[in-house]
Every structure is written in C-alpha cells, then in structure tokens.
Amino acid sequence: MKFSVKKHFLLNRRTFTSAVCTLILAATLPAAAQQRRVKKAAPVCSAYLFTYFTGNQPAKEQICFAVSNDGYQFRALNGNNPVISSPAISETGGVRDPHILRGADGKTFYMVVTDMLSSKGWNSNRGMVLLKSTDLVNWTSSAINLQKKYAGQDSLLRVWAPQTIYDEQAKKYMIYFSVKHGNQPDKIVYAYANKDFTDLEGEPRQLFFNPENAACIDGDIQQKDGRFYLFFKTEDRRPGIKIATSDKLTSGYVMQSNDYVQQTDRPVEGAGTFKLNDGSGYILMYDMYTSGKYQFTKTTDFKHFKAIDEQISLDFHPRHGTILPITAEELARLTAKW
C-alpha cells in the first residue's frame, strides 16, 4: 500500500484547523450557543395579577386590574377603574370575562375578552378581542367577529368567555371559547391564534362533547401532572362547575365525575384556576353572579375542594375574571402605573 506524506500532512492540517475553529467559536460565542440549546428559565413569581370586569352596565364592562402579594389579599389598581378603554378596543363598545396568560417565552402576555355589551342582550355578541403586551401596561388589540370571518354563521347568536393556552405540540396559542347557534346548546370550541396574535387560523372545532348534550360555557383549562383539566359551567339540572379531563389538549375529554365542584348552593359561573407561588396547591375561584360575591376554594388534586372564604380579602367586587402569577418587578411596574 502506498502512503503519501503530502496527503497525510494535508489531512492532519485540515483536522487541526477544524479543531482550532471549533475552539474559537466555543470561546467567542458561548452565550449565543447556550441560548439556542438551553430553554430559558421560568420567571420567579412572587405576586399575582387579577384581571376582571365589574358589572352589567357599559361603564363596568371594561378591564380592571387588582394585585396581591400572597394570592389571598387583593387590592384594586387605578381605584377599581378600567385600565383599558373598552370602546377603544372592541366592536360592541364593551368587554367581559378577561383571561390573561403568560407566554411560553416568559415575557409576553396574552389577554382575550368577550366583545359584548349585556345591555344589547345575551344573544347579541359575535366575537372577542385579542390583546398582547410585553409589560402588562401597554397593549395592542384586535377585534374578531366570527360571523363576519367565517361563512355559514348566520345562526350564530353569541361568542362567550375566550381563554388562551399554549399548545406545546403545535407550538401555537390555542384560544377556546363557547358558541351558541340557533336552538342548539352552547358548545366549547377552539382555534389557534396566528403568529402575531391578531386573528384566528382555520375553522373553530368542538373541544368538549358533553355526554348529556347540555350547554357548556366558561371553559378554563389547567395542566397538572401530564393531564389537562377542563373546568366548565354546565346548565344541566342546575348551573354549576364540573371537570372533564384528557391526556391531550385538543381532544378526548371525559367527565371526571358527575359532581359539581363549587362549594356553594348558589348559582356560579366563570371558573378560574391558578397555581399558588408557594407550591401549596391551586385555587379554583368562581363568580357567584346572583350573590354579588366571589368564592375561592383550594385544592391539591382537582378532586377535593375546600372553601377558603375566611382567608380572602378583596377591596372591590369582581365579575368573571382570572389571576396570573407575576414577578416582583412586574408588580412594581403595575403599581407604579396605577
């Protein structure tokens, strides 16, 4: 076998050059490489933001904020006055049922609200408003009218209580909400938001099929231990909150039981769940809409719920809203503004 000294030298020179380049790149670009390979750590949350509306009059169908340091004692910002003008963002002039979410990047926030004035009737609204922010103070918005956007929606009567969750499989934000067509019961459906969070992609699909074919509204999804828990208000027999579960975000939801989970005999709606920052469990709260009050319950397993009314303090009267864990810096920014 012939052996070329020149060829051997060239090969070794290439190997040496490649190794040197690799070392130089590793020394000069480690931060960029790490950012590409390592998932950003989640923000350390030590406070909470409660977003809500306050009543059934136009002046009260607007977005309000309250904050808390412990998840139990909340104080309204801006004197319990709106922090975002409904006429400036909505088609109807009013908004209800705000839901707020921290994005997958940890620093972008998404809020969705029902585009509605109740004074025009409970079957009067056709859409929602999508909002986006990077600081919780300044928001961009887009109003979406489903009857105008999609064909064959002549019988659409209402679009209620949208919420957003990040679909880790699809790498998109999923918006789910209830719709009512003609004499059919309200159904919870979903669609994905576009990249800019200004519109919906594709046709809405039904998310949950109630085995009793009863009306389902006010969906709220919480993920725990690899399962998805869908809290919703059903109108069968008596209005109340039940739970359906699935190991997939967009399908396969089965009733956890036929029991109601609210800890009151009074009518309730607008379930909202959030995880406590201290790791002690989760809060399920809901709007006791005929009683003029809110009830908070605590759970660790989404099967057993205990009312904790004696631990809760609110200096305002919220209607259907949601709570987001926030950082100390975000709390300072909100209180400095309002």
Score class of each variant (00 low, 15 high):
255 M>H: 01
306 K>C: 00
224 K>S: 09
303 K>D: 09
262 Q>A: 12
288 M>K: 13
321 G>R: 05
219 G>A: 15
270 G>I: 01
310 E>T: 14
235 E>S: 14
238 R>F: 14
326 I>K: 10
295 Q>C: 04
218 D>H: 03
271 A>T: 10
247 D>N: 14
321 G>N: 07
306 K>D: 14
258 N>F: 12
328 A>I: 02
326 I>Y: 04
296 F>L: 03
308 I>S: 11
257 S>W: 04
230 L>D: 05
287 D>Q: 05
240 G>R: 08
325 P>D: 02
289 Y>G: 08
297 T>Y: 05
239 P>C: 02
252 G>D: 03
265 D>P: 02
323 I>Y: 09
242 K>C: 09
264 T>P: 04
303 K>G: 12
307 A>G: 12
317 H>L: 12
238 R>K: 15
236 D>N: 13
326 I>M: 10
233 K>F: 00
293 K>A: 10
327 T>F: 08
243 I>S: 08
291 S>Y: 02
251 S>M: 08
301 D>M: 05
320 H>F: 07
261 V>R: 01
235 E>C: 03
310 E>A: 15
245 T>A: 12
286 Y>A: 04
243 I>L: 01
262 Q>E: 12
289 Y>T: 05
219 G>V: 10
237 R>V: 12
249 L>I: 10
318 P>R: 04
267 P>H: 08
240 G>L: 00
256 Q>E: 12
304 H>K: 12
264 T>D: 04
216 C>Q: 13
322 T>D: 15
296 F>E: 10
215 A>C: 07
287 D>A: 01
321 G>F: 06
276 L>D: 03
268 V>H: 05
300 T>D: 09
229 Y>Q: 07
315 D>G: 06
286 Y>K: 06
246 S>F: 08
222 Q>W: 01
327 T>D: 08
294 Y>Q: 13
251 S>R: 13
